[in-house]
């Protein structure tokens, strides 16, 4: 059987991006500092990967102020969730493939 890679998403080859999307798949919204805490990555690494996902329209950014401090929240888009689900299916298929 030929391996179907149409569902595999190159964007998610990066670990941090896949992790960000995993968090946003189960949380309505998540803020920058909470991401930092749960993923244990540096500010720069996190920011650049969030930017990539935003450019792909996998996530949307909402900027606001809480007590005069900037508070940036991220949400998944329908497109992003679909891509994430497809990517998981692709990974599962890869595993199934190797069992044969």
């Amino acid at each position: 059987m030929k391996l179907d890679l149409s569902l595999y998403d190159k964007i998610f080859e990066n670990r941090v991006r896949l992790q960000i999307m995993s968090v946003l798949a189960v949380n309505e919204e998540y803020d920058f500092n909470s991401f930092k805490e749960v993923l244990e990555v540096t500010d720069g690494n996190l920011a650049s990967n969030l930017k990539t996902l935003e450019k792909e329209e996998y996530i949307v950014v909402e900027k606001s102020f809480v007590d005069r401090k900037p508070n940036t929240k991220y949400k998944r888009t329908t497109k992003g969730l679909k891509a994430f689900e497809n990517h998981l299916i692709a990974l599962e298929n890869l595993i199934k493939q190797q069992y044969k």
């Binding site: 992790q19 968090v23 189960v26 190797q98």
Partner: peptide, 22 residues
């Protein structure tokens, strides 16, 4: 990618989903 890595990757995603939402 090795099968072992794939399993690990899926396991980590699951763990992260738990950790981030509970």
């Amino acid at each position: 990618m090795e099968q072992k890595d794939l399993f690990k990757e899926l396991g980590e995603i699951r763990l992260l989903m738990e950790k981030s939402s509970k």
